[in-house]
């Protein structure tokens, strides 16, 4: 009987700038299937928040319904959480963000929750450029209802029961690019070295940041013929670049050979250092990002890494020109300035 995780940790665990060990960012023990890709993503989220020294109470994790949407229970147990209705996480996130823009909003969704029932909400949250991280744990099937093909299952992909998917897949990164997302990345649950810097950069991005993470369903979609299995994804991964996230306090010391290196300064002064492996791709150019995605798709490969970034993205609050103080902190005094102010306003309009 080992579904209780021992309390002991490695005695030499490192602490972050807040003096916390990684333990502070952990959640309860996962109840997902053993070997689920989602658990690796949870671990990457824990590691990213630990490394960024985020105060756990300054982060809100939001999710919808599905295996993926269960995961917020498995990380950051000291943060805020909202497990919403199926596919409706974006509207809860929008409401929360409008009310209190000072929290970090961390949305977790799956391929069903995003690309099927939640598609309507998904496209609009991109359109509005809500300042949040949106992670799709994409396994190409409905794991919670025994593995039916989802809307992101590739055409021709074979399910565990042997049936072949007849429909085209919705490509979430392409869709996000099309709708104007300012941060688009794609990764693989089995590659934390890539996923962790991407999550860190996504948290720092001042607008909507989506990371589509291929996360194999070990129970229903890890069979030969599936295009979302561990083996298939490993065989067909194409990297845009290697990614290094450098917090703004740190001095950049690494240097790559000229031409291959690209340094992107993020909004808060942190850096993303990319060692480019795709020569014709420029992560700051939407057209080249779309081309790179399409090209790899035609070649039957899966492009992972940072795909597109617009460092100075203008989020919803900026567009709506809201006040600097979070709305939930406004009191009756500010909201109802009184008859004198009304008189002055009216006078201006005369």
């Amino acid at each position: 009987m080992t579904y209780i995780r021992p309390k002991f940790r490695h005695p030499d665990l490192k602490t972050n700038d807040l003096g916390y060990t990684k333990t502070v960012y952990e959640g309860s023990l996962s109840t997902l299937c053993a070997g689920c890709g989602h658990d690796s993503i949870s671990a990457a989220i824990v590691q990213s928040c630990f490394e960024l020294a985020i105060q756990p109470h300054r982060l809100a994790k939001l999710s919808g319904i599905g295996c993926s949407s269960k995961t917020p229970a498995y990380f950051l147990s000291q943060s805020h959480g909202f497990n919403s209705v199926h596919g409706r996480m974006p509207s809860v996130a929008t409401g929360s963000n409008l009310a209190n823009k000072e929290l970090i909003y961390f949305g977790v969704s799956g391929d069903g929750d995003t690309a099927s029932i939640g598609m309507g909400q998904f496209v609009h949250v991109i359109r509005r450029n809500l300042n949040m991280v949106y992670i799709v744990m994409n396994n190409g099937c409905y794991g919670l209802t025994k593995g039916q093909d989802s809307a992101t299952a590739d055409e021709g992909s074979k399910s565990k029961s042997g049936s072949v998917n007849m429909f085209n897949a919705i490509d979430l990164p392409s869709l996000a690019l099309e709708l104007g997302a300012g941060f688009v990345a794609q990764s693989f649950s089995g590659d934390k070295a890539q996923l962790i810097p991407l999550i860190k950069a996504a948290i720092k991005h001042p607008g909507f940041a989506i990371i589509n993470v291929i996360s194999p369903c070990v129970t229903f979609n890890n069979n030969p013929g599936s295009t979302k299995s561990y083996d298939y994804v490993r065989e067909h991964i194409e990297l845009t670049s290697t990614v290094d996230f450098v917090p703004f306090q740190e001095e950049i010391t690494t240097s790559y050979e000229a031409g291959a290196e690209q340094d992107i300064t993020l909004h808060d002064g942190s850096h993303l250092q990319l060692h480019k492996l795709e020569s014709e791709w420029n992560p700051e150019d939407r057209m080249s990002a779309i081309t790179a995605l399409q090209k790899t798709k035609i070649n039957g490969e899966i492009l992972t890494g940072l795909i597109f970034i617009e460092p100075e993205s203008k989020d919803l609050h900026h567009v709506l020109n809201t006040v600097d103080i979070p709305l939930n902190q406004l009191t009756a005094k500010e909201l109802c300035p009184g008859s004198v102010a009304l008189e002055e306003l009216n006078a201006e309009l005369r």
């Binding site: 995780r5 070997g35 689920c36 658990d39 690796s40 649950s189 089995g190 083996d231 490993r234």
Partner: peptide
């Protein structure tokens, strides 16, 4: 299959 489950847990 390198799912990292052991590493994470």
């Amino acid at each position: 299959i390198e799912c990292d489950a052991c590493v994470d847990i």
